[in-house]
């Protein structure tokens, strides 16, 4: 049986790790490679690096940083932010990333998913979905793009099913309401996607306490992986302690 994965996320701006709430009021949070090495040593199962300014400012992806990360860590990692073409995907992968994550550009150009997936394999295509509650949508959630700024007019479940068909290997689902609150993951939409898809779902947004992880991995929700940033970055939850807690809660983790 596969282990449930704990995934620290590093938001990157201008080559530095940054932290904010709801993508606003960013503060410097250190060197991404140093942060990454520390997470590996603490027992992270995977890492995600998101260049959070890339989509808005249309900057080039961070190939040089990706190479530096790949040279220094020994667990799988995903890079996202500003990836627009199959060539961008190739550049990130050949720089040493295991997967790329695409978000806004997947909505604008769904053939980027199928084109990259058929060329490099579904295992390296993560589609990130930023979900905002909207009662007018069938699932109750609408897809947002541009770092959550722009509603895309798509139902989250419909979109998730579509990207699965297009060749996505994994969904990174962020609840815009829960993100930064530390009040727990959004169980409703995460459970709906976990139960409706045959590809893994990574829950994101809202982690505050070890109980939140246990709940999102538990039978009620069924996420395959849980992503968090602040609680790991500010040492509020140690990954080792978190895994020990999850193990006591009968959740399969790599320890």
């Amino acid at each position: 049986m596969l282990a449930k994965r704990i995934i620290p996320c590093l938001d990157i701006k201008d080559g530095r790790t940054v932290k904010g709430i709801n993508f606003l009021n960013l503060k410097d949070a250190g060197d991404p490679v140093e942060n990454a090495v520390r997470y590996c040593e603490e027992g992270a199962d995977e890492l995600v690096f998101l260049d959070i300014t890339a989509t808005v400012e249309r900057r080039e992806p961070l190939s040089a940083l990706v190479r530096r990360i790949a040279r220094n860590i020994n667990i799988p990692f995903t890079v996202g932010g500003g990836i627009r073409t199959v060539e961008d995907v190739q550049s990130i992968l050949t720089s040493g990333a295991d997967k790329v994550s695409i978000n806004s550009q997947a909505v604008r150009n769904p053939s980027l998913i199928s084109g990259s997936s058929s060329r490099f394999g579904a295992q390296c295509m993560v589609v990130a979905i930023d979900a905002r509650a909207n009662a007018a949508m069938k699932s109750g959630y609408e897809v947002c793009v541009d770092g959550g700024r722009t509603p895309a007019g798509l139902d989250v479940l419909d979109w998730a099913l579509e990207v699965q068909d297009l060749g996505a290997g994994e969904i990174l689902l962020t609840s815009m309401e829960a993100d930064g609150t530390r009040n727990g993951y959004d169980i409703g939409i995460t459970a709906l996607l976990s139960k409706s898809l045959h590809i893994p779902v990574i829950a994101s947004g809202g982690a505050g306490r070890p109980e939140d992880f246990a709940r999102v991995f538990g039978p009620e929700c069924g996420a395959d992986a849980a992503l968090a940033a602040s609680v790991f970055h500010y040492h509020e939850i140690g990954i080792g302690e978190l895994k020990a807690y999850l193990q006591r809660a009968a959740i399969t983790v790599r320890v």
């Binding site: 049986m1 596969l2 994965r5 199962d45 295992q123 290997g169 994994e170 893994p200 790599r254």
Partner: peptide
């Protein structure tokens, strides 16, 4: 095997 490919820690 319900999920193919197998991707993850085993």
């Amino acid at each position: 095997c319900q999920k193919i490919p197998q991707i993850g820690w085993n």
